[in-house]
Every structure is written in C-alpha cells, then in structure tokens.
Design a protein around this nucleic acid. Structure first.
Length: 555
RNA sequence: CGGGGCGUAGCGCAGCCUGGUAGCGCACACGGUUCGGGACCGUGGUGUCGAAGGUUCAAAUCCUUUCGCCCCGACCA
C-alpha cells in the first residue's frame, strides 16, 4: 500500500483527551479517531490490525470445529424477556421501539439469539455437539467508556457458543476453547494469564478469564508463581500472614473518640492484625455483620455470593440495629447473622465493645461470638497461596477473553431441548466464550511500545514491512524502492511504501510511531554501494544489505 | 449515577481572576533556501470563544441553565 494514497493522519502532539499508552498511540499514529464517548472510527491502519487479529481468531476457532455465522444486532425484546435478562439488565442495554411500537434492543451479547436458533434447529443428541461463533459488533451503554478502545460502547467481539448433550461434552467444549484461546493469544504475542473468574450474571458454575498484564488494565489478578494459582481478585483466596496468639484476658478498654482501626491501633499500641473490623451490611434478608481482620478489607464480590444483594448500613441504622455508634461495634452479643473471615478463627483480638468510647481486648472467636466462616477479605500482595503457601503477587490486567460454562441457564427458558438415546427430552448444555478484538490490539500496544511509538508483534502488525525511500526525487532511490515493493508484495508480504515527498526525518518519525516491525531504508549514499538498510523496529538494530539480497533475507 | 477537570483556528494551548470586541506554537497554502531523525526565512488564510438566556454602554471574560469530552469512584454479558 502507498502511504501517499492512504489515510494515515499522524499527530505530532499528544491529544489532550488521551491518557493510556494505547489510546495516545492509536490516535497519534493514525489508527483511530473518536466519534463520541466510547465510539471509535477505525482508519485504514486500525482496520488492518483488527482484521489480522480476526484472522487468527477465525483460524483457531475453525480448528476446533467452530462454525462462523452472523446474527442481527437488533433484537426483539421477547427473546430477552424469555430469559429474564430484559428485566435484570439495567441502563447498560440500548433499548428502542420499532415503528409499530414493538420493544427492541441492541445486542450486547448473543446468548439469547444463539439459543433461540439452537431451539429451532437442534432436535436430537445425534446432532450434538456444535460450536457456533460470530465476530460481530456488540453495543452496551457503558456507564463510563474509558481508555480509548479498551472500554467502548460499541465494540467488535468474537463470541462462540457451545451446545452439548451433557456435562462431559460441555467440559470438552470448554477445554477446546481454553486451548484455542491459549493459541490465539500466544499467536498475538501477548503476555497473558488464564485465571479463575466470577461467573457473575452469566450464571453457571465455572468460568475463566484471559488477562493481559498492563498498568492500563481495569482488573486485578492474584498470582502464585510457585504453583501457578491464578484468580481474579474478586474471588482469589489468600492466606494472610500468621499472627501470634496473645494471652490477653477479656477486658473493656476506654478509647475516647478512637473509632477507626488506625486510631485505636495507635492509641493502644497494638498492630492492625490484632483487630476485628465489624461492618454492618443490609441484605435483602435483613442485617448482616461482616468481620474481617483489622489489616484487611472486605471483598464485596465474595460477600455478595454469600448473602446476595446488599448495601452498607447507614450510620443511623448501625445505632438502631446494634445499639452502638459505628466505630465501637464488636462481634459479641448480637442476634443478627454474622459472617467472619476464616483467618479470624484462631487468635485473640481487639474490637469494639458495643459500648460508646470503649473497645474490648481479648476477644476469642468461638467463645465470645459465633459466626459463619468464609473467605471474605481482599487478597493482598505478600499474602500466601492457599494451595502451596508461597507468597502471592497482584497484577493489573486487561481482560481480553473469557470462557463460561452456562449449563442450562438459557436453554431451559428458551426451550432448546433435544431428545436423547432413550427419547427423553433434555435441555442442551451450553457454554459461551468471548474475545474482544480491539482489546487485543490495545493490550498489544500497552505491552509493546517505547518513547517513539508502537512496536507491533509481527503477527498482528498492519503491515510486515515499511519501505522508506528517503528522497523520492532521486530516480535511483525510487526505482529500487518500487522494485522491492513489487517483489516483496509478490512474495506475499504486506508492504507499506512511504512514497510521500517528505523529509527523511518525518518519514523516520512516522515509521517509528506506526510501529511496523521491519523498515527498509533506502538512502542515496548507501545505494551508491548497492546497499539498503533494514531496521528492526523493536531492537532498533540496523543492517546494511545488498539490494538483491533483501527479498531473500526478509521472506 | 456521585466527585473533580476541561470546552477559544485542524491539533496543542494562552487570554478569563481585574469586562473594552481574540492571540501563540504546530499544521495548512504560496515563494525561496534546505534535504538521513518531526528544517529555515518570507508571505498568506483560518474562529458562530461548546450552546441558550441574563447583567452591562460593552461579555471569551461576570451570573444562570444546558450540552459535550476527560479523569477518579460506583457500575460492568
């Protein structure tokens, strides 16, 4: 492709609205333009990257017998009403009416529609299993689009769905996807982890996420480098450091105006981990007291899985329900449900005395209070793996893919049944598997860039080679450049030739910004000796090569 | 949805506090010199100052409302 005939509007200055590296560089290097919050135009270079990624995805999903189909973006409400998600999902779903007043929505995912299709087309166990997928635009009215292409309201996603007769089949489809995903992200040359994740609204029991480490990521994962344990921080289990068991007798201590763990800890000269933090929550089934150790935080997702929907109690409610001001709550002598973090099972602690201006020292779990024991704290860097006891570390990550076992959550309400060998009607067992194409591109940039610009992995770069004829007014330069352009293209390489009448400096700067892996620099002086230069964008290594050996070297 | 910030030329910004009718850099056009890391000199064009309303002799500037965008948080199939 010729630079002079391609829309590659590079920017010298950093756009004010961009913050993350991928956002800044995609704008500056002329890959994308923003239409509105969370809506992006993919310019020629951007589109090429997306297409390269999609090609890899197609090859790998086809290889596990996935069949590509294409589904409408506009959906009738009834299908979503059948599964209840029409009502469960709030403002995140774009809704509209057609001219006859019929309720419609824009597809934010396609479980419903895929299942609807399966319900019509699959009759017998003999037709199973199936994997259907599409690479299609999804629309979600995100509360907060951010970080350029990382979180948008309209985005391209590969979503596949598996249909099996039983759990074993689902497990097989799930593993096929896990291995396909590993190949896809490996081919895209990303650093990534496969981690345990919270199935959340998708229902079902098992799910994993594929996470690309990057400071621009919105999620965090907990990793054990010793045994390989890896989980989303929303559900990661960790063992806090052990503490000594003190021989304190139970006593009430006057702690005037000392409310927070920090304040009482300083006042009594006792470390945070000897405290019990009591947090009052209001669930749909009444108040719940959650207890975590003083040096820990409550993991909201974990408690959510135990008690369902809830909200933190307001100050007035604390006094009303527990009879004491927040800041002096302790776990003793309450009639409400108490859920305590498992690490509190052993030890002797300090907490509120349930009496204004007093804390209690020498609290013994089990005898001074009873509780349900669950892991409800947020895992922290330096805590220990519950499997192998090695120290854990935490990394920020970008979610680039996920796989879910859905079971029958969609097949039952949408009546996707099949007849088994005995003629019994059974619901199809499903899985759903997503990959965000643009997030792969963004993650690749986040993980591979330098001061000068993008450094694309070879597999997803918009072009393989960029030719830089430095002076296009020199006949020899142009001739050699054009010959190389033709020969390399004929060999199947994707080649961009910077045929603009620009100064050499401009071409170098733009080439580095755009980030094509290999540059061929054609300058008059070297040409006089029959040489051109090849430059590796990543290592910056430059080699002088004879003109007629270039093609052989690069193909 | 809560908190914060910003809307002035294509892009990046100054001017606003203390009202007097808009400026700088880059980009763009033309001419000349230059030509291997975002050249230099000269000339030139460019704005409903996000929008609406108000105060005032006079509003980019003060007041009110509203829209948009970014950041933090909440949310996130």
């Amino acid at each position: 492709m010729r630079f002079s005939k391609t829309l590659i509007p590079t920017l010298r200055e950093t756009p004010a609205d961009a913050e993350s590296a991928s956002h800044i560089l995609m704008l500056r290097a002329g890959y994308i333009r923003q239409l509105a919050a969370g809506l992006y135009i993919y310019l020629p270079l951007g589109l090429r990257v997306i297409e390269k990624i999609n090609k890899i995805i197609r090859e790998e999903i086809n290889a596990i017998d996935g069949q590509e189909i294409s589904m409408p973006v506009l959906h009738p409400a009834e299908v979503w009403q059948a599964t209840g998600r029409w009502y469960e999902i709030g403002d995140e779903m774009f809704r509209l009416k057609d001219r006859t007043g019929r309720d419609m929505c824009l597809g934010m995912t396609h479980e419903e529609i895929m299942t609807w299709l399966a319900s019509r087309e699959i009759r017998s166990y003999r037709e199973l299993p199936h994997i259907w997928y599409q690479i299609q635009t999804k629309l979600r009215d995100e509360a907060r689009p951010k970080s350029g292409v990382l979180r948008t309201r309209e985005f391209l996603m590969k979503d596949s769905y598996s249909f099996d007769a039983d759990e074993e089949g689902l497990e097989r489809s799930y593993q096929l996807h896990a291995s396909a995903y590993n190949r896809i992200f490996t081919r895209c040359e990303l650093k990534f982890y496969m981690v345990e994740s919270d199935p959340g609204m998708m229902g079902g029991a098992t799910s994993h996420e594929f996470m690309a480490p990057s400071p621009a990521g919105e999620d965090e994962v907990v990793l054990c480098s010793s045994c390989g344990y890896a989980a989303n921080i929303e559900l990661a289990i960790s063992q806090p450091g052990k503490i000594e068991i003190r021989d304190w007798n139970f006593e009430e201590v006057h702690t005037p105006e000392k409310r927070t763990v920090e304040e009482v800890s300083n006042f009594l000269k006792i470390a945070h981990e000897y405290f019990i933090k009591s947090i009052l929550l209001i669930s749909n089934n009444g108040p719940v007291l959650a207890l975590v150790r003083g040096d820990q935080e409550l993991q909201e997702k974990k408690i959510n899985r135990i008690i369902g929907e809830y909200r933190p109690a307001q100050k007035g409610e604390v006094k009303e329900i527990l009879g004491v001001e927040a800041g002096f709550i302790g776990p003793m002598n309450h009639k409400i449900r108490i859920i305590a973090d498992t690490c509190l099972q052993k030890g002797v602690y300090v907490s509120g005395a349930n009496k204004e201006q007093y804390h209690a020292k020498g609290i013994r779990p089990g005898s001074d209070f009873v509780a349900e024991w669950h892991d409800i704290h947020i895992a922290k860097e330096g805590e220990f793996c519950h499997k192998c006891n090695a120290p854990l570390r935490i990394e920020k990550v970008i979610e680039i893919g996920n796989i879910f076992k859905l079971g029958t959550k969609y097949s039952i309400p949408l009546k996707a049944f099949y007849l088994d060998e005995k003629g019994l009607e059974k619901p199809i067992i499903m899985g759903s598997y997503g990959i965000g194409t643009a997030r792969i591109a963004a993650a690749a940039i986040e993980q591979n860039h330098d001061r000068d610009g993008i450094i694309w992995p070879k597999s997803i770069a918009p072009f393989d080679i960029e030719i830089l004829p430095l002076n296009i007014n020199d006949r020899n330069t142009v001739e050699i450049a054009e010959n190389l352009y033709r020969d390399l293209t004929e060999k199947g390489m994707d080649v961009l030739i910077d045929d603009r009448d620009e100064r050499a400096g401009v071409k170098f700067k733009d080439a580095d910004l755009i980030g094509i892996p290999t540059h061929i620099i054609i300058g008059e002086k070297n040409l006089k000796e029959g040489l051109v230069e090849t430059k590796n964008r990543k290592t910056k290594e430059v080699k002088k090569v004879k003109v007629d050996e270039v093609v052989k070297l690069l193909c």
